[in-house]
Design a protein around this nucleic acid. Structure first.
Length: 326
DNA sequence: ACGCAGGGCGATA
DNA sequence: TATCGCCCTGCG
């Protein structure tokens, strides 16, 4: 089944920079496949896997979004539309956000660097949890590659012409994968060809010491922790629930809440956000991560998640980051 | 070459 | 309860 439609810019408030939103390194998921200005990914909608192609003509921030979708079974067009609106943060009111940023002289400079930048929401919350764990102490390119490797090795493959896309494996499947070469070898035991290369294990995806966290977290999501409940819990409850997962500390928990579960009041603090907060609001005095986190949540309220996203992007593009490296 | 950046964990006081 | 060394890999 093929569907084609448009999301016009008057269907949401403020601009959208599709490319920037997808490529700004948010831990909800790796960047989508990009070809000729068109972004593609396999997304589950109403229980059906569906290839989504999204294009914003000439990278014009006000151009309508051109959507095509392909799936075996028919999916209601409204479901596809709202799914895409959600993934690209189109339900967020950027006009209101800009008004808010303009009122704080520390924040107003971020606006011109971040036009149309939106929160890139997870289409698969479990993938978001594993992405966020993989991102800890790790570069964007590295965790992007790791997640794509995991999908390729244990996801379900969907062919669209010559293109191949993979689902993200379920917790039930990911909890069973071998952690390293030795475990993989033990699982195969007999009659493998001499030249067999052991590469169907988590470490071979480049996740390093996080492999055991990923396996344990998959087990806990499968058996102990109901992640669906996070949607209805308050911030503190959900935060503490996530901290129970191995590999999830405060920064990763906040990323999961913000990008995966819609908690826009979360304020994920990495070293950079810590330094920026210290520079902008504490005269360069060193600020402990937890203090920065509480400060951000308190000061920015429901805008905290966006402020964090905008601050980081602004600092990168304006050269502030280089200054803070000292 | 090789030391360092990046967040979380577990041992220490 | 806070602090510190270590985990793995890519990069300068």
């Amino acid at each position: 089944m093929k569907t084609q439609f448009i999301i016009d810019s008057d269907e949401y408030k403020g601009q959208l920079n599709l490319s920037l939103t997808i490529n700004s390194g948010q831990t909800s998921q790796p960047a989508w496949l990009q070809r000729n200005g068109c972004f593609s990914e396999l997304v589950e909608i109403d229980g059906v896997y569906c290839l989504i192609n999204v294009k914003q003509k000439n990278y014009d921030l006000n151009a309508p979004l051109e959507i095509t979708s392909q799936s075996k079974e028919k999916i209601d067009e409204e479901s596809i539309r709202s799914c895409i609106m959600n993934i690209f943060g189109l339900y967020d009111d950027l006009e209101d956000l800009n008004k808010y940023l303009n009122k704080d002289p520390k924040l107003s400079p971020t606006i011109e660097f971040c036009k149309g930048l939106r929160i890139f929401k997870a289409h698969n919350p479990f993938e978001c949890i594993i992405s966020s764990i993989s991102s800890a102490n790790c570069s964007i390119i590295r965790w992007n590659k790791a997640i794509n490797d995991i999908k390729r090795k244990w996801g379900v493959k969907y062919n669209y012409g010559t293109d191949m896309f993979y689902t993200f494996p379920s917790p039930a499947n990911l909890q069973k994968v071998p952690e390293h070469e030795l475990e993989e070898m033990q699982q195969c035991e007999d009659n493998l060809p001499e030249d067999y290369i052991f590469e169907k294990n988590l470490k071979s995806c480049g996740v390093g010491y996080r492999a055991k966290y990923i396996i344990k977290t998959s087990q806990m999501v499968q058996n102990n922790i109901n992640i669906q409940k996070l949607y209805t819990e308050n911030y503190n409850k959900a935060f503490n629930t996530l901290l129970q997962l191995p590999g999830v500390g405060p920064k990763v928990a906040d990323c999961i809440l913000l990008y995966g579960f819609g908690f826009q009041n979360a304020f994920p603090v990495d070293v950079w956000i810590g330094r920026i907060i210290s520079e902008l609001y504490f005269n360069g005095e060193e600020i402990k991560p937890n203090k920065a986190r509480l400060f951000g949540m308190e000061k920015f309220g429901k805008y905290a998640g966006y402020v964090q996203l905008y601050m980081f992007h602004y600092a990168r593009k304006s050269g502030l980051l280089d200054v803070l490296k000292r």
